[in-house]
Design a protein around this nucleic acid. Structure first.
Lengths: 142, 142
DNA sequence: ATAGTTGCAAAAGTTTTGCATTGTA
DNA sequence: TACAATGCAAAACTTTTGCAACTAT
């Protein structure tokens, strides 16, 4: 079994974008190629914008924001709220939780299947759980 | 056993503010009286500012922000991050978690002793847990 | 008296919006 | 060609900051 990983080709992401009924525009394709490289990525609008700049992609910050929200609404990304200073978007959309390194502002995924939460009180009538977020905040020193 | 509750007098909050080595200024006393009324309160800078206005307290929004952060640093309040749009401050500083009504932007406390979280992976070397936040997001409909 | 605090206004930072222009299908 | 998306700049918001005036001790 080969261990090589490939960056998604324009064709891969094109299918992915079409699958969620968004137009595969130049900017969306370029951003999707950056986002959907192998591995789980946690980006902010600013960090993705910087990545795009470095990669020579011409796109405005406003379009990065719009695209991140469109991808999130389409289920391609998940928003993670850990910090009131900025919004993180996670390419891992499966059931999972997070470690958050407060000193580095970095996120690490925790497989949702590993974590077991017990003792949650009854949900009030008329409401339903849309998601459970567990954030384990880490600081330096043992 | 009487069930009556009292609003904190200026004298109560004065002691409380002095205990954390902050000067009991007119603004801090007034904001503390609003914050530390019986029950757990979840406020934003804006909502507390509005409350103060309604109560006829003369205080600027900047001072409300500063005071909320000073009280938080002093351990009188806890910051709750649920929403990138604004920061919530919680007068309940004991171990607990939250329900978050997405449609109403409202928080409800869940006693920390009730919730049991199992299966958390080992914390990386050199790090320690500063806090675990569980947010159960609720939307409408059963 | 002195050292910390307030108030204001302005700055800073993130995110959203409006509209002419562009580009996809 | 038609219609949706982009880009830009500007607006909208939340939050922070700097400094002169004020106030608790």
């Amino acid at each position: 079994m080969e261990a090589r990983t490939y960056s998604p080709s324009a064709i891969d992401v094109l299918a992915r974008i079409r699958a969620v009924k968004l137009r595969p525009t130049r900017q969306r394709i370029a951003l999707a190629q950056l986002l959907f490289e192998p591995g789980d990525h946690h980006v902010t609008a600013e960090s993705l914008f910087d990545q795009a700049q470095s990669a020579g992609v011409k796109v405005s910050l406003a379009t990065v924001y719009n695209t991140l929200h469109q991808f999130t609404a389409a289920g391609l990304l998940r928003e993670v709220v850990v910090n009131s200073a900025c919004t993180y978007f996670d390419t891992n959309i499966s059931d999972h939780h997070h470690f958050f390194y407060e000193s580095r502002n970095a996120l690490i995924d925790i497989d949702g299947a590993k974590i077991d939460i017990r003792g949650v009180p009854a949900i009030p009538e008329g409401a339903r759980i849309s998601r459970v977020d567990v954030i384990i905040r880490l600081s330096r020193q043992g």
